[in-house]
């Protein structure tokens, strides 16, 4: 077993003898930089943007591909839906020596200015989930690494994607968000949703809070970029028209570009 301080200090050195029992991958099969989609089916299309991408493993909801960008090994690993499985992925990848994580996925827009197809660059996440309470008291903020956030914004500038920087809601119940009245605690779900909107939250998704919190404790860097597919604050007809033109190209292109920005900046910092 490794202590909190040992893990925090391990950096890019794999924990000796560690077996990734859920991911089924080994340290030499994983890059330092990892994209984290929720959907296992999205790993291959993302990996096509890498040089020399190869499939590494598929176990449970965890699909892993590895390739390279700018000569640096990079990976994409699906987390499955929700913070419990996402936390396992970040824990195992951290022990394998990965230190930079970018969540990439879809979300619901929460502000009138969040157009369908816009990107959300997640600066911090609402801990509206159960997993992170196993790590830190609720008062602790789930914030992204500022260099990853800055790299994502630079990547959006390069790809020309329309992007907003802001807070996401990381929830545990998909249907509690899209059909709150179906829940016995509907009044509470409505009141809290309204508070998140008034607090300026820009998108609703299901994994960022755990990825940011576990990464912070392990002293890894994490951020996230989300496609805003749908917007509960938008009129239904407008929404349906916008959804017809929705593609993942801008999202994936921006996430991959952000890895390039991180790699360029890390190389420049290492060169002094």
């Amino acid at each position: 077993m490794t202590s909190v301080t040992e893990l925090a200090a391990s950096g890019r050195t794999p924990i000796p003898g560690f077996v990734a029992e859920h991911l089924h991958v080994t340290p030499d099969q994983i890059g330092r930089y990892v994209l984290l989609p929720g959907d296992p089916g999205r790993c291959e299309p993302i990996a096509r943007h890498f040089d020399d991408a190869r499939h590494i493993a598929t176990h449970r909801e965890y699909v892993t591909w590895t390739g390279s960008l700018l000569g640096e090994p990079v990976s994409v690993v699906s987390t499955g839906i929700g913070c419990p499985s996402a936390a396992i992925a970040v824990e195992e990848l951290s022990r394998l020596g990965a230190d930079t994580f970018i969540r990439v996925g879809t979300s619901g827009g929460m502000q009138p200015f969040c157009g369908v197809g816009d990107l959300a660059i997640v600066s911090a996440a609402i801990r509206d989930e159960g997993t992170t309470s196993h790590y830190l008291p609720m008062e602790f903020p789930a914030v992204a690494d500022i260099d990853v956030v800055d790299a994502l914004r630079e990547a959006a500038r390069r790809t020309g994607a329309r992007a907003h920087v802001g807070v996401s809601q990381s929830k545990d119940s998909f249907y509690g968000e899209i059909d709150p009245d179906s829940s016995p605690v509907a009044p509470q779900l409505h009141a809290r949703w309204s508070a998140w909107v008034k607090g300026g939250a820009i998108c609703s998704e299901m994994e960022a809070a755990a990825i940011f919190t576990v990464a912070a404790i392990r002293r890894r860097r994490a951020g996230g970029v989300m496609l805003m597919a749908g917007n509960l604050e938008m009129p239904q007809e407008e929404l349906e028209a916008a959804m017809k033109t929705l593609t993942l190209d801008g999202l994936i292109g921006t996430a991959v570009e952000a890895l390039r920005v991180m790699i360029e900046r890390d190389h420049a910092a290492a060169a002094g």
């Binding site: 609720m138 903020p141 914030v143 800055d150 914004r153 508070a195 008034k198 607090g199 939250a201």
Partner: peptide, 29 residues
């Protein structure tokens, strides 16, 4: 200070404790 631990009482009068106290990115950079 990029993010802050809400180990205080006032902010609960505004938003539930799960909401992150995070600074503005441009101000921080």
């Amino acid at each position: 200070v990029w993010g802050a631990i809400r180990d205080e009482g006032t902010s609960l009068h505004y938003l539930p404790v799960e909401f992150p106290a995070v600074a503005n990115l441009d101000v921080t950079l």
